[in-house]
């Protein structure tokens, strides 16, 4: 289990792609921090799978309700990194 302090945007997109693939119409390398996940082609299942991979990889528990309420990468990263900080 990797103990990392912080999940970066690049780390998140890597996990998203592995978990749920990537929409051909979307450039995940672009400026997507504030783009809605729905517009990036990701639904709630994709985010649940991503969340569960993050939990396994970082050895943390994410709060279900707050993860599901995060609709952009910025909000999602904030939730994850807050949990990581608390776990540290």
């Amino acid at each position: 289990m990797t103990q990392q302090k912080e999940l970066t945007l690049q780390g998140l997109t890597t996990i998203l792609k592995a978990a749920a693939g990537a929409d051909e119409e979307v450039d995940l390398e672009g400026d997507i921090l504030d783009v809605e996940f729905a517009d990036l082609g990701y639904d709630s299942l994709a985010l649940m799978e991503t969340g569960s991979r993050i939990e396994r990889q970082f050895g943390v528990r994410l709060n279900e309700a707050t993860v599901l309420s995060a609709t952009t990468p910025r909000a999602f990263l904030a939730v994850v990194n807050e949990s990581l900080a608390q776990a540290a």
Binding site: A20, G21, A22, D23, E24, G41
Partner: peptide, 8 residues
């Protein structure tokens, strides 16, 4: 197929 369909 769209890449999004592959993992599922």
């Amino acid at each position: 197929l769209p890449n999004r369909l592959i993992p599922q």
